[in-house]
Amino acid sequence: MLRQIGKRLATAIPSLIGVVVVTFLLTRVLPGDTAAYFAGPAATPQAIAEIRAKLGLDRSLPEQFVSYVKDLATGNLGNSLSTGRPVVTEIKARLPASAELTFLGLFLAIAIAVPLGILAAVKQGSIIDHACRMVATAGVSLPVFFTGLLLVYVFYFLLGWAPAPLGRLDAFSSAPPEVTGFYLIDSLLARDLETFRASLAQLAVPAITMAVFSLAPIARMTRASMLAALASEFVRTAKASGLTPTTVIIRYAFRNALLPVVTTLGMVFSFLLGANVLVEKVFAWPGIGSYAIEALIASDFAPVQGFVLTMAIMYVALNLLIDMLYGVIDPRVRMEG
């Protein structure tokens, strides 16, 4: 079992190497002068030269790569130009906000999309089926930032149900003592229901926005793979053996249909992590996405690089998790090797 896990971990290594190389290339092999870029638009030639030496840009590319990897290994992603603080510290502080939003969104999406997909496939041609197809096609067509704005307009401006889209907590609440960094969990741990309610209120609309966005591909894939599974010969055998519909649908069809759905989750994560940036901008959410946008606008490259790297590493880790989940579900994968 440990060997299995080790093997799976090993499969992530090429991806990690790729990620590190690409992020390095993105900063160093650029048209234009990286030092000038890092120094900012108003720097003097002398300051640029200093920065070049400080960044080690006067050395050869392989040397630069080695020191880049060394920095990464020691957790040094450089300092932000505008705030002067280390990028790692900032990202660490902001990551829980992004993660809380993304995971809640994904959780909502799965909770709605999977049952919807199953129902649509079981009752093919019914109203639920048509609804599912509509959701699937419309959902992938909605620009996530636009959905967010629409929801803000409806729930904040028209109905007044949601608070103003300005961050994780309103002005009257204070953050719960940090344990996980997730306000929902931390406030419950602190038995502070008031803060829990306040942070849930802030989180609800952005999380729904994320859910609407990721619902479509999950529902679509669940429906398609359920249809394929239901039409399979082993389902026919199960039916011919008189097994009950629940057994046939859940134990025989759905377990098999789950495999492609789990694969789709990888793609959904990719979309979600990207959508996260846009949603954070719409809701002034203090996560790593808005951090990256602020840096982008200020032409402050170190935070952007740190952001891309963090996102990529998180994504590689999530894919690894999905891979392991796949191994749990499918004995054919488990036995391999």
């Binding site: 010969e233 082993f234 026919r236 008189g242 134990r251 098999n256 054919r332």
Partner: peptide
């Protein structure tokens, strides 16, 4: 079905649930 009349199909490998132990399938 299965108790009074039952059926076997061509392509036996496809007729079995690929991710469930065969013993469990008989138990079902």
């Amino acid at each position: 079905r299965g108790r009074e009349m039952s059926m076997i199909f061509q392509n036996p490998r496809a007729a079995l649930n690929p991710i469930r132990k065969v013993g469990k399938q008989i138990e079902d």
